[in-house]
Simulated scan of single mutants.
Amino acid sequence: MASVKLDRLTKQFGAVFAVAGLDIELPDGEFLTLLGPSGCGKSTALGCIAGLEKPSAGSILFDGTDVTERDPHERNIAMVFQDYALYPHMSVRDNIAFGLRQQRLDEATIGRQIDAAADMLDLGALLDRKPVQLSGGQRQRVAVGRAVVRNPAVLLMDEPLSNLDASLRVKTRTEIKRLQREIGTTAVFVTHDQEEAMVLSDRVAVMRAGKLQQIGPPMEVYRKPANLFVASFIGSPAMNFFEVETGLEDGVIRCRVGQTVLSLPTGVVAEQSLGAIRGGRKAILGIRPTDLMANAQRDLTLEGDVFLVEPIGPVSYVDAEIGGQAVKGLCEPDEAPAVGAKVRFGALAARVHLFDPASEARL
């Protein structure tokens, strides 16, 4: 097991910076997810940690030792890929054993390691099968088993669940998290799926265009997004945004949304932003659909006309037009308003976010 430090990690392809000055420190045993849309640099950063990509600048340290120039086999890492990368002519047993035999371990030790991995990942009945005889979820468990059986210092996973169907993704991510907890390996997981990141991670590092936007525990990133990009990327359905005029009156922040004036406590913004708000300024107000409840008495209310109701089982989403824009909220299925009816949404002031429209930073 090892701590990992990325110190101003940079990877440049011609004039394009795939990774630009990435600074991240992982303590030993942490599960970190690099999260972001396609092309944000997350897989390139993972490749640099693995030694598959050579950084253009910066350094990578394992337990304080600089490994930037070391080859992958010198780093004691294991990697799980998106496409499984199993040997089709080998049995599950031999696929798992392959890396151990490359290390020239004796067969008794290899056997014990295979049995331990098979037990953890429920592969015992599959050891003599070939990959073609396995489902997608089973193949991915074999790929994970082949990686962890070597007891790597760092386990790297590049979108390993993206080829699985929805139910298998949920099951497999649970197995990956449980396994990582049991063996205590430092893990770096790459995905564009914010739900996977929220469920699996000790911390989430959100990336955009090669740059780190925010890093922190999943619920901290969800509840206190650092900027508009993080606020819009994290959370499903996406956050509602309103362009508002703000001002400070009688010790509260006034925000005008269409014809509605909302009153927010000053604690929803940083103290250094209050001066600008006092003089009046434009801002972008954000409220998550899951924090905007239909037919509920809350600190803030917004009224609109329903144009769509989306039942998804335990809850229903209600889409309404408010101030000329579409807004999504939440309701109990049995209390869903009819299409064309008026709806009143309620939100807690503590769940409202304000952002600067120019810098996109959280106020």
Rank of each mutant, 00 (worst) to 15 (best):
D23C: 09
L26H: 09
L26S: 05
E30W: 12
L32P: 11
L35K: 04
K42M: 10
T44P: 13
A45F: 11
P55T: 09
A57E: 13
G58Y: 11
D63F: 04
G64L: 11
V67P: 09
V67W: 11
T68V: 13
R70E: 06
D71A: 15
N76P: 09
V80N: 10
Q82M: 06
N95Y: 12
I96M: 12
A97E: 02
A97I: 03
Q102H: 04
D106I: 10
D106W: 06
T109I: 07
T109Q: 11
Q113A: 15
D115Q: 11
A117Y: 08
A118W: 12
L121D: 08
P131H: 02
V132G: 00
V132I: 07
L134W: 03
Q140H: 01
G145Q: 04
A147Q: 07
V148Q: 08
V149D: 03
L155D: 00
L156A: 01
D158W: 00
P160T: 01
P160G: 01
S167D: 05
L168G: 09
K171M: 03
R173Q: 10
I183V: 11
A187T: 15
D193Q: 00
E195F: 00
V199K: 00
R203C: 05
M207W: 03
K211P: 00
A231P: 10
S236K: 13
F242T: 05
E243R: 14
L264T: 05
P265A: 05
K282D: 15
G286S: 12
P289N: 09
M293T: 11
A294E: 14
A294T: 05
E303K: 14
G304C: 07
G304F: 09
D305W: 08
V306G: 08
F307N: 13
P311S: 04
D319N: 08
E321F: 05
I322N: 11
G324A: 08
K328T: 15
E335C: 13
P337I: 05
R344E: 12
L348V: 04
A349F: 07
A358P: 07
L363T: 00
